[in-house]
Design a protein around this nucleic acid. Sequence first.
DNA 1: GATTGGATCAGTGGATACAAAAAGCCAGAG
DNA 2: CTCTGGCTTTTTGTATCCACTGATCCAATC
Lengths: 223, 223
Amino acid sequence: MSSSIASFGKHASTAEEEAYLHIQRALRLGRYKPGERLIPEDIASEIGMSRMPVREAFRRLASDGLVVLRPNRGCIVAGLTVDELYEIFEMRSVLEGLAVRLAMPRIDEDELEELDRLLERMERAGKSGSSDWVVRHQEFHGRICALSQRPKLTHQIATLHAVIEPYMRIWFDYVEKPLSAREEHAAVIAALRSGDAHKAEQVMQYHILGTAPLLAEFATPSR
Amino acid sequence: MSSSIASFGKHASTAEEEAYLHIQRALRLGRYKPGERLIPEDIASEIGMSRMPVREAFRRLASDGLVVLRPNRGCIVAGLTVDELYEIFEMRSVLEGLAVRLAMPRIDEDELEELDRLLERMERAGKSGSSDWVVRHQEFHGRICALSQRPKLTHQIATLHAVIEPYMRIWFDYVEKPLSAREEHAAVIAALRSGDAHKAEQVMQYHILGTAPLLAEFATPSR
DNA sequence: GATTGGATCAGTGGATACAAAAAGCCAGAG
DNA sequence: CTCTGGCTTTTTGTATCCACTGATCCAATC
């Protein structure tokens, strides 16, 4: 089983679930533009079901923050303003900081090696220039979440990752490869290796907050 | 307009919204027991609509963590295990810590007096023995969230408050009034008055994490 | 030429209808 | 008395249908 933070690999047991996963994937891959309208009819026939399960999927996607639902106006793809993007990263910084702090007790030499491997894979994906890097990056962060053994925290973080994923992809495509990323992720591992939970939390917070400004230029300017 | 963290006072523009608010209120007031099944048919006729909007409301409530939806098995009221309750409080501690830290720049003498007033109202509500205290308490925390000027953060915190609200109510009914609460809330205000954002964040974290064990006995034991 | 008013139409919200799944029930076997 | 297997009932999941809202477009007016 993958340690990805993503829920890409699941298969649906109901039509609603299928619609949810289908639309979520499309949104995360950036197939729809922010502000674009999602017409239930179209999506329904695309997947081969009626509008109803699609409408229900919209509710969940709206709760996740991936779309916006306005009464009698339908469903539009959520776009983040710069302010909103920063806000997400502020939330990520404290939540993932918490996750890494709580992960500390489960850290042993095996885990550290696993994280090293994930870092290495992320590095290779980055060199290949493909946006796999985004997936590998989520895998790395997801692994640490998983170690925290906090299901709700992990879910919350995964949801935030889904929201910023399109921006991560655009960013990656533009700037080739995040330069500071390797050192910062290595620093997280180093902090975990040192056994200092508080230090690890701070390093994670620093890493995440440092990433925000790099992505900000791809968000829509704040009003 | 109330500064309550709650969304009690809203009125619905669609049937789905009405169903959502109706069920949410009932859950927060503890009218349904954890594990209890919510039958769409019943709720629909109770509010005077068909099952459909109720089903959609269920999706949102499930995203909020207030109910659990299992395919072909319907909707049951979510109950928190002790572990889950602690997890919520861990998340609250860092999120509300963040909120109070970010609120600092908006703090002036007027705001401090407003917070003092809210503390006073909470105190009075506590003496009257009514579970109004819970609402006042949310008002206090909600005010600080609002000052952070972070809509998504505020919404997230409000959602967590909704999930723990039934436990807060039970707790209050049992132990009369939280003894340490007044001093801890006063300490938060004092930290805000001092202008030390980092201190305020720590005091808030301490306050929230300290509350968790008091509520834990009302959650279902972890497996 | 810009603005407004209304006709038209696409799309949404909600109700009803129907099929499929799960839960309850009962009788018979062990 | 308990367990099992199949029938019945209840409830869920999905599709279809209808009324109404909001958007669009065109023409008449200023």
